[in-house]
Design a protein around this nucleic acid. Structure first.
Lengths: 182, 182
DNA sequence: GGGAATATTCCC
DNA sequence: GGGAATATTCCC
């Protein structure tokens, strides 16, 4: 899923730019795109952390950098060196970055007037207001059941979305295939 | 509520230490404890942000500092100057800081859709089992909050799915266009 | 690797 | 001021 504001996450832009920079001067020995251009390699983590990270981020910790890579779904693709890949992180394709999102994308602003209220919910609210303690355990049970149901429904929706993402990717591949072949 | 690990939040320690430092050298003109010792005043926000903040934090933005103060429940106590107070933030009482906690201590959410049960959920369940009625109203509130959040998240997911459906349709149209024209 | 707490930023 | 997204840290 693409970001709302159509601009990639700062972390992705910085990491991409950092790799462009590494090509410019002699820092290619520290970090560089891999041969295929579909990932990158940190050749010298110590130098990388000390010299390059602080120019782009508010820290010089390699592990924090790795944590961010994981957050955005990058995979470590070699056990022998610090190589990372993400299908939408490719040399020369800066605009592809907009398609990369954080794994855990908690919701944001939502019109409050859309806030729904269920029967269980309203009942519990009334009982809180009326200090009617008798039914509280019952309310708790109802609410927890509803809670479980919501969680299940969310999970189903998320699976549906995952399906759509795969589908979208295939369609895009398909389209690009047509474009190049005709 | 005190923190779990018995040590104050880093932000509080740094802010406290910063005020101690300000007494040592000539920086008392920039920031200092107030007369009563139950709060502090930033006399010169520009100098404060430029010279002192970076020594303690990863930024030099006054507004970020303010945001943290608000998060920890400090109040601005004067309209004429940048004075802030918190009942447990007092000169000479560094150990009082442990009693200050972030406002929004809502336990984190269940983003991973593999997780069956949230902290609120478990807490409520435990209290039901133990017949501890004292916390039932609190549980109800927590559960209802969680409920609202789940509902909001569901709605967002549904909107995302709607978006995908539109996208899919367009892509398919696009594809059929290619097919017929070539 | 990733969950979760805390920090920083962005925006209303 | 504060909600929420993103970044950084801490810890398993």
């Amino acid at each position: 899923m693409t970001r709302k504001n159509n601009s990639p996450a700062p972390f992705l832009l910085k990491t991409y730019d950092l790799l462009e920079e590494s090509g410019d001067d002699g820092q290619i020995r520290i970090v560089s795109w891999n041969i295929e251009g579909n990932g990158f390699v940190v050749w010298d983590p110590a130098e990388f952390s000390e010299l390059m990270l602080p120019n782009y981020f508010k820290h010089n910790n390699f592990s924090s950098f790795i944590r961010q890579l994981n957050t955005y779904g990058f995979k470590k693709t070699s056990s022998k060196r610090w190589e990372f890949q993400h299908e939408k992180f490719r040399r020369g394709c800066r605009q592809l970055l907009v398609g990369i999102s954080r794994k855990k994308c908690e919701p944001s602003v939502f019109p409050s007037f859309l806030k729904a209220s269920s029967p269980n919910h309203r009942r519990a609210q009334q009982n809180i207001n009326g200090s009617s303690n008798n039914n509280n355990n019952n309310n708790l049970t109802l609410l927890m059941d509803e809670n479980n149901k919501l969680r299940r429904e969310k999970m189903e929706l998320e699976m549906e979305i995952a399906h759509f993402k795969t589908l979208e990717m295939r369609l895009l591949e398909c389209l690009s295939h047509y474009k190049t072949n005709h």
